[in-house]
């Protein structure tokens, strides 16, 4: 387990200006941004000077083949990956707190594979999401909001999470993330292994969270067509590098996806 504490995301001497990320959206000021971040697991370079970011209110998709480094982007933000270069910025400040403090900075992480607490009930899982909330009224209000978004969680609130289907567990995982009242929600493969009908529902919910609840969303997705329908902007990763950055339309028009997925470009 490469659980690293703070200290791994040391700002390096990298020039933070002039790092081109295509359209250079940083002019408006990114809410959350990775600048030239490199992550290495032993000999494996999972991220190679990757620069990505999300502006306030945006819904940004990260796509790419297996092993491209998509999950690593989110783990680097959460301090869960061994960052060897580059800096993660939150509201233009370097983010250099320990993993357990990041949720207080307004970032909630919904990891790949859902990882709900199966021995706890739905309600308890949701409560786990808002540790630092001593205000019981606020907690109840957030729980109501989450249950309104996902009515199934309300119906099953006293059941153990282990008794839920995969799709329901995914809703619970997202709901648990929302309980933290985050400004940015990081979603890693929220539709992995779900039935098509459920996939559709999850995408609708993600879109609703972004539009109605005004939560900024950074989502890793393999389901390219669906995620491009709801995203404001998209990154395509390949072998740890950002291969493309632009609007969904620009991604659809270019050949980047076929190139990347068929291994037709040389990331070097």
């Amino acid at each position: 387990m490469a659980t690293t504490d703070n200290g791994t995301q040391q700002p390096t001497a990298e020039p933070t200006v002039g790092i081109s990320n295509g359209t250079d959206a940083s002019g408006a000021g990114m809410l959350l941004e990775l600048v030239a971040v490199s992550v290495r697991y032993g000999a494996v370079v999972a991220l190679n000077r990757a620069s990505l970011g999300v502006q306030r209110g945006e819904l940004v998709a990260v796509m790419g083949p297996n092993g491209a480094g998509k999950s690593t982007v989110l783990k680097a933000i959460m301090g869960l990956a061994p960052v060897v270069g580059g800096t993660v910025y939150l509201r233009q400040e370097p983010l250099s707190v320990a993993t357990h403090e990041i949720v207080q900075e307004g970032i909630a992480f919904v990891p790949q594979g859902r990882r709900v607490f199966t021995h706890l009930t739905i309600e308890e899982n949701l409560e786990m999401g808002c540790l630092h909330l001593n205000d019981k009224a606020e907690q109840a209000q957030r729980m109501d909001a989450v249950m309104e978004l996902f009515p199934i969680l309300h119906r099953k609130r006293r059941d153990l999470a282990s008794q839920m289907s995969g799709g329901q567990q995914q809703m619970l995982a997202i709901g648990r993330g929302l309980m933290a009242g985050p400004e940015v929600l990081l979603l890693d493969e929220p539709t992995l292994g779900l039935a098509p009908i459920v996939v559709k529902e999850v995408f609708e919910k993600i879109s609703e969270i972004n539009e109605r609840l005004k939560t900024t969303i950074f989502v890793v997705e393999h389901n390219i067509k669906s995620v491009l329908d709801i995203a404001d902007r998209a990154y395509v990763l390949d072998k740890g590098r950002v291969a493309h950055d632009g609007t969904p339309a620009s991604v659809r028009q270019s050949n980047i996806l076929t190139d990347v997925f068929l291994g037709r470009i040389d990331a070097g």
Partner: peptide, 23 residues
């Protein structure tokens, strides 16, 4: 609630930490 966090740690230490618990 302390015991609940322990149950969560038992199941998934990293997921617990991500939600702000100093495991």
């Amino acid at each position: 609630s302390f015991g609940r966090v322990l149950t969560a740690i038992r199941e998934d230490e990293q997921a617990t930490e991500v939600f702000g618990y100093q495991v």
